[in-house]
Lab assay of single mutants.
Amino acid sequence: NQASVVANQLIPINTALTLVMMRSEVVTPVGIPAEDIPRLVSMQVNRAVPLGTTLMPDMVRGYA
């Protein structure tokens, strides 16, 4: 089972991601792999991401 990136807090739209906003968790469906967390830092979300939501590739500008 692969860990995915999950929002550690509410992340408002257009917010640049920081390490404290994300955690890794084994979830279904699988989202962005946890090993990509360092790559996600400073990328912006293109929608509001509620606490506990799995980050999907289409939620992060420039990721996919």
Rank of each mutant, 00 (worst) to 15 (best):
P33H: 11
P38H: 12
G31M: 02
I11T: 01
I37W: 03
I11V: 11
P38G: 12
G62F: 06
N1P: 15
N1Q: 13
T18A: 12
N14W: 08
P38E: 10
I11K: 00
M59H: 13
Q9N: 09
V27Q: 11
N14A: 06
L51F: 14
P57T: 04
G52D: 07
V26Q: 14
L40C: 04
L19I: 14
T54I: 10
S4A: 03
I13E: 15
M43K: 14
V20R: 09
R23K: 10
R39E: 05
R39Y: 11
Q9Y: 13
M43H: 13
V5A: 12
L40N: 00
P29W: 03
P33Q: 08
G31I: 01
V41I: 11
A3S: 14
A34S: 15
V20F: 11
M56G: 05
V5E: 00
G62Y: 07
N1M: 15
N1S: 15
V5M: 02
G31T: 01
A34Q: 11
G62V: 03
V30Q: 06
S4I: 02
Q44N: 12
R47L: 12
V49F: 02
Q44R: 07
I37S: 04
M59P: 00
N8M: 11
L51K: 12
V26E: 15
N14E: 15
M22H: 00
I13H: 13
A48W: 06
L10H: 14
P12N: 13
A34K: 05
S4T: 04
S24Y: 08
V30N: 06
Q2C: 11
N14V: 03
Q44Y: 11
L55C: 02
E25C: 06
M56C: 14
V49M: 06
G31K: 01
E25K: 04
S4W: 02
D36W: 05
L19Q: 06
V27D: 02
A48F: 11
N14L: 11
M59R: 03
V30F: 10
N46M: 10
P33S: 08
M56W: 04
R61N: 11
L17P: 02
L40G: 00
I37H: 03
T18P: 00
S24C: 05
G52K: 04
I37R: 07
M21N: 12
P33D: 07
T15M: 13
L55G: 01
P38M: 11
V41D: 03
Q2K: 04
V27R: 06
V49W: 02
V41W: 03
L40A: 00
I37A: 09
A34C: 15
V60T: 02
V6G: 01
R23S: 12
Q44F: 11
V45Q: 01
N8K: 10
V45N: 03
V30K: 04
P33K: 12
V5Y: 01
L10G: 13
P57K: 11
T53E: 14
M56N: 10
P12H: 07
A64I: 13
V41P: 03
A3L: 14
P29A: 05
G52E: 07
P33V: 13
R47Q: 14
I11A: 01
P12V: 07
D58N: 12
R47T: 14
G52Y: 06
E25I: 04
Q44D: 04
P29V: 09
T28Y: 10
N8A: 08
T28V: 09
R23I: 10
D58L: 14
V20A: 12
L40S: 00
M22G: 01
Q2T: 09
V41C: 04
S42Q: 12
V6S: 03
L51W: 09
V45F: 00
T28S: 09
R47Y: 13
V49L: 14
R23Y: 05
A3R: 04
P50Q: 13
V49C: 04
T54W: 02
A34I: 11
L19V: 07
P50N: 12
L55Q: 01
I13C: 09
P12E: 07
M43G: 03
T18F: 03
A34R: 04
A64E: 13
Q9M: 06
R39T: 08
R61P: 15
N14C: 06
V26T: 12
P50I: 11
V27E: 02
P29L: 08
V26S: 09
A16P: 12
P57G: 11
S4Q: 02
G31N: 00
D36A: 07
A7Q: 01
M22C: 03
I37C: 04
T53L: 14
M43A: 11
A16K: 06
N14K: 10
G31H: 01
E35P: 07
M59D: 14
R39V: 07
Q2W: 07
V5S: 03
N8R: 07
L10T: 13
V26L: 13
I37E: 03
Y63A: 04
P33C: 06
D36F: 07
A16Y: 10
A3I: 11
V49H: 02
V20I: 11
G62Q: 08
P38C: 04
T28G: 10
Q9F: 12
P29I: 10
L55A: 01
I11Y: 00
P12F: 04
D36H: 09
Q44H: 09
Q9P: 02
R23W: 04
P50C: 14
T53G: 05
L51M: 15
R23Q: 09
T28Q: 06
P33I: 13
Q44I: 06
Y63M: 06
N8Y: 04
V45C: 06
M22N: 01
I13K: 13
L55I: 14
V5K: 01
V41G: 02
M21L: 07
R39Q: 12
Q9A: 13
I32K: 00
M43I: 05
I13R: 05
M21E: 02
T53C: 07
M59Q: 05
V49A: 05
N46P: 03
V20Q: 11
G31V: 01
P12T: 09
P50V: 11
A64K: 13
A16H: 14
P57F: 07
L51Q: 14
P12L: 11
T54S: 06
L51V: 12
M43D: 03
L55W: 01
S42A: 15
A48K: 06
D36R: 06
V49N: 01
L10V: 10
A34V: 15
D58R: 04
R61Y: 13
A34P: 09
R23G: 08
Q9T: 15
A64L: 10
T15P: 01
S24T: 13
N1L: 10
P12Y: 06
T18Y: 03
R39L: 12
V45Y: 00
R23M: 10
I32V: 09
I37T: 09
V27S: 08
M22Y: 02
T54D: 01
L40W: 02
M22W: 01
V60W: 02
S4C: 07
T28C: 13
A64T: 15
T53H: 14
A3Y: 12
G31E: 00
L17D: 02
